[in-house]
């Protein structure tokens, strides 16, 4: 018994090593200067300590464009994430708790939409947006991010399973209106799913690359993903004006994964349960 667990633990350690190697490398590399990075010394071990210099360079390079990108990423992720969560929660509840004509057909459409690859929509959306004069604005990134058919699906499944009709009816008998019933009775019960959907959509927006890459040409509007992509392109054509950009890219990558890692760690008791929702039905 314990023997088997030792095997299992070793297996887990090996897995952890594999999944941590790139992150560990990132952590180590962000403490090196350009010389240390390219000297050919051990890539996975420290060589000098320049993290503070790197951070200072990172936040001041090109008038602090990194901070701007960070701010943009936060803006897009929060507005897109919160917006799509609100929409999904409302719709999921509507689908789960109301009987109305056309409900099944509409929900079938939602399920169909889950299967439509959203990137296939980027190019026509770009042309539409440009006709409306919206490309190269924050709206071009935020508005399409509001669409989350999977969020609706998740919320519906969870609501059906965890919000009893009797409870809603009891609230109605007490004279609560529909919205009050939703807010006071249903919403608290839906909380794990709400947080899960919120995290999923924030992550999706935060990590998005294709959409902002196509929609934005003004680098002042870039989110981190596109900005760091631009830096790495400049760096690989040695165009930092004599300055090696690589340590900035690496430090910038490290800084940019901290907020999400932090969010996942602090909110783990919610999402770990919520993620299973979609699969339980």
């Amino acid at each position: 018994m314990s023997n088997r667990h030792i095997g299992a633990k070793l297996f887990l350690l090996a897995l952890v090593c594999y999944f941590l190697v790139p992150v560990w490398w990132l952590l180590v590399a962000s403490t090196k200067n350009a010389e240390g990075l390219f000297s050919g010394s051990g890539a996975l071990w420290f060589n000098g300590f320049h993290l503070v210099d790197n951070l200072r360079d990172l936040f001041t390079f090109n008038n602090g464009e990194y901070l701007r990108w960070l701010g943009n990423s936060v803006l897009y992720a929060l507005t897109g994430g919160i917006g799509s969560t609100v929409i999904s929660v409302l719709a999921g509840y509507g689908f789960a708790k109301y009987r109305f004509r056309g409900r099944n057909l509409t929900f079938a459409l939602v399920l169909g939409a889950v299967m439509v690859p959203l990137t296939a929509l980027v190019i026509p959306t770009f042309v539409m947006m440009s006709n409306a004069g919206l490309t190269d604005t924050v709206w071009a990134v935020i508005l399409p991010s509001l669409l989350s058919p999977f969020g609706v699906y998740l919320m519906r499944v969870y609501t059906s399973a965890s919000v009893p009709d009797e409870l809603l009816d009891a609230a109605r008998i007490d004279g609560a209106g529909e919205l009050r019933t939703f807010l006071r009775v249903a919403l608290p019960l839906m909380r794990p799913a709400v947080i899960t959907v919120l995290l999923l959509s924030v992550v999706a927006t935060w990590n998005n690359y294709f959409l902002p890459l196509t929609m934005l040409s003004d680098s002042k509007l870039y989110p981190l993903t596109v900005g760091i992509g631009l830096w790495s392109q400049l760096a690989s054509s040695n165009n930092g004006g004599g300055q090696s950009l690589w340590s900035l890219i690496i430090t910038g990558s490290l800084v940019s994964i901290v907020p999400l890692v932090f969010a996942f760690l602090t909110l783990q008791k919610y999402w770990q349960g919520g993620l299973a929702v979609g699969s339980l039905k």
């Binding site: 929409i87 409302l90 719709a91 509507g94 109301y98 009987r99 109305f100 939602v110 399409p144 669409l147």
Partner: peptide, 23 residues
């Protein structure tokens, strides 16, 4: 109450129409 149900899914339907169906 069915009408209220529609109202709950309305915001989604709008986004759905504009950013999925229309494109």
């Amino acid at each position: 109450r069915g009408a209220v149900g529609w109202l709950f899914i309305l915001p989604f339907l709008v986004v759905f129409a504009v950013f999925l169906v229309a494109p």
